[in-house]
Design a protein around this nucleic acid. Structure first.
Length: 524
RNA sequence: GGCUCCUUAGCUCAGUUGGUUAGAGCACGGGAAUCAUAAUCCCGGUGUCCCCAGUUCAAAUCUGGGAGGAGCCA
């Protein structure tokens, strides 16, 4: 048997100063769904997430909390690690930038960039905001209440002048453009690719990549007074995770370059411009794809500290159910677009798509089998044209969904799946097995078999998004654990007539909680 | 200020290289059915395809201008 094709996908590493909210959950969820799909499809998947723990803000927060930075990070990093069990994420690892192996990797890539002549020492002066971690030009600043200078985002700034190492980004314009041209889907969605292209075409300036003003970070090799700028440090995690600097390591040879870096649109530039340039400078292959997804608003409003409307992922799970929350986030909006979270939309999705369409389909079919076929997989007779009309699209689903997942259009994959759910429901009505029960029991058995087989396809293919519910459905069809990958979506995996089936139970309950509004949900 | 993109049914959106009566889901109304989680199935839209002008035998689809919105950059 041929070796499985590797697939390496990453989330950004999350900044420990933040509290996990629906936005973080969303990014990791998308990677989880893609990872699960790829695994079921026979790929050798490496799915990484983690936390970004360096920088002046962390240093300050730790000081304010009266603890050592690392102890501070240990605590808050755990909040992000907790997302995995909470949302059923299947990440293969969790990386922290405070790990020793990461320091080694950062210093190695730095040295490689030095060796290729892309790093030089100069000095940097400008208005700097600790909160934004960015420098600003004089004319970008706004005036604060007391005449103080503020960043465009309203953060305090101070004049900073310090020696700094620079990366010769200005020399990489043509090579970056060639890298983008090489694959028109290098950066997705297309609108984001356009932005990156116009940014790079407008000319690149050398990039300041070290600081001397704080200590909490990775020291520059051979010059301990300098700490690496947050992005060299953070981005390198993707290499650390697969064994860099040991480029002969099995994991590195297998997984690098990454297949997909999933990012929020706010950090696209770092991933699509700086990171490929760093990598190429260090003699390493740049990532195959960078996908920038959109933002969620909540009930039509941007999430913000002042509104305090961040949705903790746990609230979603508690209120609507784990699979329901996962399904909603993946289905509600075209992946890549911005979208709005609302209670009404959430309940609509879980009731219409999950309970009414998919859940009820399984329930009505399994119930009929349970009552009329001795609680076992029915024995089919010859198939008719009507049967084929349903089976053919069901069997075509894998190829179609694979196409969608390869371009990260996750919502499209789900739309395709639900088209077959709809056809199956129509087939139930047109075949009316409850009537056949009296007139033609053999035909009834055939119809129910066809339906069970179609539900087997649907449940196997739904596993990446609604793993728990799909697995319960497969249990009810008595599909063995080792027959649940996509490889089982062929004749050999077909349900065996006569196999005893357990008593069916609904897997997608309708929403029955409070009607509307946030006040109703928590007495806490 | 420069660049990119968007504006299609009440809501969310599809609409390939211009071509017969512009589509889907949800919501809404009517009907059928009764296996099922009061779920399912069928039927139902006189929508200025943002506005104006142009190209064309023919434009939601191309060109120019305008209005509104989003994003990236400076």
């Amino acid at each position: 048997m041929a070796e499985a094709e590797a697939f390496y996908i990453t989330t950004p590493i999350y900044y420990v100063n933040d509290k996990p909210h629906i936005g973080h959950a969303y990014t990791t969820l998308a990677c989880d769904v893609i990872s699960r799909f790829m695994r079921l499809d026979g790929r050798d998947v490496m799915f990484m997430t983690g936390t970004d723990e360096h920088g002046q803000k962390v240093e300050n927060s730790a000081e304010a909390a009266g603890v050592e930075p690392l102890a501070f990070c240990d605590g808050v990093s755990q909040n992000f690690r907790d997302l995995s069990p909470m949302l059923n994420f299947t990440n293969d690892g969790f990386i922290r930038t405070t790990e020793d192996r990461h320091t080694v990797a950062c210093q190695a890539i730095w040295q490689a960039m030095v060796d290729s002549g892309d790093i030089y020492l100069d000095s940097y002066a400008g208005w700097y905001s600790v909160r934004d971690e960015a420098f600003y030009a004089e004319d970008e600043l706004q005036d604060g209440a007391n005449g103080e200078k503020l960043s465009p985002f309203g953060a305090p700034v101070g004049w900073v002048e310090e020696p700094s190492y620079f990366f010769r980004l200005s020399q990489w314009q043509d090579r970056l453009l060639a890298y983008y041209e090489e694959d028109p889907n290098r950066i997705l969605p297309q609108s984001r690719r356009n932005e990156v292209l116009s940014f790079v075409k407008s000319g690149l300036r050398d990039l300041s990549i070290s600081r001397t003003s704080f200590k909490w970070g990775v020291p520059v090799p051979g010059d301990d007074g300098h700490i690496m700028y947050v992005w060299v440090d953070a981005l390198t995690n993707y290499l650390t995770a697969v064994g860099y600097p040991d480029t002969e390591a099995e994991s590195f040879k297998k997984y690098w370059p990454a297949d997909v870096h999933m990012v929020g649109k706010d950090i696209l530039r770092f991933h699509a411009v700086y990171w490929p340039a760093f990598l190429m400078s260090a003699g390493l292959a740049p990532p195959k794809r960078i996908f920038a997804h959109g933002w969620w608003t909540v009930e039509g409003k941007k999430m913000s500290k002042s509104l305090g409307n961040f949705i903790p992922p746990q609230d979603l799970v508690d209120r609507y159910g784990l699979d329901q929350a996962r399904y909603f986030m993946m289905r509600e909006l075209p992946f890549g677009n911005d979208g709005n979270f609302s209670h009404t939309a959430m309940v609509n999705r879980m009731n219409s798509d999950l309970a009414n369409d998919f859940g009820n389909l399984a329930q009505r079919v399994l119930s009929m089998i349970n009552k009329n076929c001795d609680g076992a997989v029915p024995n089919p007779g010859l198939l008719t044209v009507d049967d084929s009309a349903l089976l053919i699209p069901a069997r075509a689903l894998l190829a179609n969904m694979r196409g969608a997942m390869e371009s990260q259009t996750i919502h499209q994959a789900l739309i395709q799946l639900w088209e077959v759910v709809g056809e199956a429901n129509r087939y139930v009505d047109s075949q009316a097995p409850w009537a056949l029960k009296k007139t033609d029991p053999a035909r009834m058995a055939t119809v129910l078999y066809v339906l069970a087989e179609v539900i087997r396809h649907l449940a196997i293919l739904a596993q990446p998004v609604v793993p728990d519910a799909a697995s319960k459905m497969l249990d009810q069809l008595a599909v063995p654990e080792d027959q649940r990958s996509f490889a089982a979506l062929n004749d050999a995996g077909m349900l065996v007539p006569g196999t005893p089936l357990p008593k069916p139970q609904g897997v997608f309950p309708r929403y029955s909680g409070p009607e509307e509004g946030d006040d109703a949900k928590s007495g806490a």
